[in-house]
Design a protein around this nucleic acid. Structure first.
Lengths: 147, 147
DNA sequence: CACATTTCAGATGTTAATATCCGAATTTGA
DNA sequence: TCAAATTCGGATATTAACATCTGAAATGTG
């Protein structure tokens, strides 16, 4: 897996929020609703989204009509940031063979090629903003659910 | 992590074997020696290499002067095959968001871009033969150990 | 104010990956 | 033939990821 399950859930939830029409609730959607809509475990998703809230990607409100909402415009939140918040930056800066201190001076056999690849992945994640992903969802050309 | 720890161990061991000079032992090296040389757990490495043996990437001999050796020429064994043997082909054919049946007809928001990326990774792994990797090791331009 | 709804925080349970251990089977060499 | 070295196969222990549960804190509504 390139992302942990928690991270995948986070991404799906964030795209869902970005694609959700601004309804009542001042833009907030309850985590329970998100979980049901995407077929995810409410409790597990809650834990994950709490981290996103702590990291400033989501804002939250308690109480009735509360819920979570994007803390910033969808165009300014990228997949890279979500992955970083949940899984950390290992994918971006760790040696594929797990060698500590793998770098230009003391590289592993895959170093050069993997550094290039990592950069590509980082670029992809960076330009994958919630705005871009959510647009496809709203257009119906793409799905977020399993079935 | 893009590869499991077991898989990383397998790759490092295989490259080490490919780079090892043909000494006595008819080309076989004991797993204990490999583990010590690379700083890996002997028992854990044994389990992993058994899988490679079962899948025909390694051949093994028991008894004194026994050990493991590449089952085929180093130029004909690629990283792709090793990863496939230990971790399976999930990296190559699974949706990055874990959606079942993600494909052209019912794609996830990352589908197109990720398919392209997966293909690139597969190409890199395929052209990374043990011969190529081991040459760099023998030339000393590259390392397999942590320290 | 009382109540229902929701996120928050921490505890607990479950499963899969990682790591170790042990005895059996095989082979070599003295 | 016997002892040592080695892989093999299965069992067990440890750790981290995944998942669930419970009660507290906050907040809107009647």
């Amino acid at each position: 897996m390139v992302m942990s399950k928690a991270c995948v859930n986070a991404v799906r939830a964030m795209v869902y929020l970005a694609a959700a029409p601004d309804n009542e609730r001042r833009g907030h959607v309850s985590i329970r609703a998100v979980a049901e809509e995407l077929g995810l475990s409410f409790h597990f998703l809650t834990k994950t989204l709490q981290r996103l809230t702590a990291d400033g990607l989501l804002k939250s409100e308690r109480g009735p009509r509360g819920g979570v909402a994007l803390a910033r415009p969808a165009g300014e939140i990228s997949l890279l940031e979500i992955v970083g918040s949940i899984d950390g930056n290992d994918l971006q800066d760790q040696c594929i063979l797990g060698l500590r201190g793998c770098g230009q001076e003391a590289p592993c056999p895959m170093h050069d090629e993997w550094v290039r690849e990592r950069k590509r992945i980082q670029e992809i994640f960076k330009r994958s903003t919630l705005q871009r992903l959510a647009r496809a969802v709203r257009e119906g050309s793409v799905r977020l659910k399993d079935s």
